[in-house]
Amino acid sequence: MRQTNWQAALAAHPRPIEALVVGASAGGVSALLTIFAALPAHFRLPIAVVLHLPDNRQSALAEVMGRRLGLTAKEADNHEHLQAGILYFAAPGYHLSVEADHSFSFSREEPVYFSRPSIDYLFESAADAYGANLAGVLLTGANEDGASGLLAIKQQGGFTVVQDPKDAHVPTMPLAALALHQPDVVAGLADIRALLVELEATHAC
């Protein structure tokens, strides 16, 4: 059977994937539900997500996702170690980083592109922690947060995915990423969903 472009890119990645990081902004809730919809409850990778949220309110995002998806979903806790099969969401008002020991850390440093949590904070720190064993996905959004973070993942040898701007609710964020580097995969949400299922089946440790 002929491989699609994303299948060929995934097959060519030389290292097993140990963690997945995902960033989204405007239009992101729907995009996240779409790409995670087919993931099984026994998914073997930890997933950390930054979705831009207002700084001053509680988020029900993890609760909503947990009800709609087969995965266990929760808001990340400070100093918590990432565990396989858990879908973690950044808390409002704090940057979320991954430390060298694969635990989360919170910070209240200045917003990035008016956002705290920032996608760049998560992506850049996770790239340092996991190197080539990290996959990063950048989805729809209305600013440039995440572009430099995805580049950092690529520079560390990780696997990078950008939503096709033509498929995005708001294309600004994917276009900013594409202006900085050529990711391993540029695809619509349906293909990204299929890619994540295949990633778990063939690449997870």
Rank of each mutant, 00 (worst) to 15 (best):
L53N: 03
S107T: 11
V49M: 05
P92E: 09
L87T: 11
A37Q: 14
Y88H: 00
I47G: 04
L71G: 07
L39R: 11
A48N: 00
A73Y: 07
Q83K: 13
A76L: 04
E99M: 08
I47M: 07
Q83H: 12
I47Y: 02
G70D: 04
R44S: 15
D55G: 13
G93A: 05
L45P: 02
A84D: 06
D55M: 10
A38N: 14
A62D: 06
A84R: 12
R44P: 15
G93W: 01
E99A: 12
H95Q: 09
L61V: 10
E75Q: 15
F89N: 10
L51K: 12
G85C: 10
Y94P: 01
N56K: 09
A91Q: 15
A73E: 12
Y88W: 08
H52A: 04
A73F: 07
S103E: 06
Q83E: 15
V50W: 05
E63C: 04
S97R: 13
L96F: 02
G85V: 13
H102D: 00
L45G: 13
L45T: 13
S103G: 10
H79T: 10
I35Q: 06
A76E: 07
A48C: 08
H52F: 06
H42Y: 05
F89T: 09
H79C: 01
D77Y: 08
E99W: 02
A38I: 01
F104H: 01
A41S: 11
L82W: 12
L51Y: 02
L61R: 10
N78K: 08
A73W: 02
D101N: 14
H102P: 01
T72R: 14
P54G: 11
Y88M: 06
Q58E: 14
L61M: 14
E63A: 13
P92F: 05
E80R: 02
Y88D: 06
L53W: 07
V64Y: 09
S103R: 12
P54T: 08
A76Q: 03
A91I: 02
A62G: 05
E63Q: 15
L87G: 10
V64C: 10
V50R: 09
G66H: 12
A84K: 12
N78A: 12
H81A: 15
L33R: 14
L82R: 10
A90Q: 14
A60V: 15
P40T: 05
